[in-house]
Amino acid sequence: MMLNHIPDSIEIIDYKDDGKDTRHYRFRLLSKTHHSHWHETQAGQFFMLNVPEVGEAPFTFTEPPNEQNEFSALIRKMASVTSALFDLSKGQIVGARGPFGQGWPHTILKDEYILIVAGGCGLAPLVHLINTLIATTENKKIVLIYGARDEQSQMLIAQQKRWLKTITIYHTLDQVSEDSNFNDGFNLLKGTPLDVLPQALSSFNSLPSKVLLCGPEVMMNSIAQTSIGRGIPETSIYLSLERRMHCAVGLCGHCYLGDQYVCKQGPTFSWQQLQSFRSTA
């Protein structure tokens, strides 16, 4: 079947700020002419947002398209595409193609002990998964470590407060100010997610059966290596990678990783897969 490079039209129906230069966007699909799999979106998959006259960039769904054809994304103002989006108003029309890529492993619903480590914007690709885990499964132990540079850079705090009823959350900040709030239910520590990893791991009765990582690659590499050192198998550690993408269908070449394309074979990889690709990188 021929690929379709053409976006469907979407309307910006709402947005609200969350953290520094970051917004939750709510979109509505106005047409499904070019892409017919919107309602099969898996947690961890992504879409290409097209801001006409500016360009395209990949973003993850924080909520996949629902029956009203509405979906959400957390978007941080970084460069041309996101800056132009931030200048648009509610009701304006942009474009979207998707869903693309491989999401988080389906087997995770069967796991009892799950450790999730996210840094900065890296929490966004995990939101839909965490919501699904909380809504569909019981008797699970889920621990989230969320690292950010400082309090202003933290995102999804309201969402995380809702999760607190069900999961344990550690916050780490590179810089902690004097008035940082230590009493809002989160375990706040100065440092990086790696500093809190031993404490988080020891909170499980046994080792977590899945470790999910998303954030800066340096952070993910160090967490993965430490987890492996603690006896967690390479096949149980999953990462979501960020790469520049133009096509999202394995043609333009920009997101290559060894002989693979992150847009097609990823963005979610097991640590074991990743090592085999990196050996050909």
Partner: peptide, 15 residues
């Protein structure tokens, strides 16, 4: 076969 993409405004105001 690598390629990039860019958006351009046409004289008739289409993009």
């Amino acid at each position: 076969s690598c390629y990039g993409t860019r958006s351009i405004k046409l004289p008739n105001d289409n993009i």
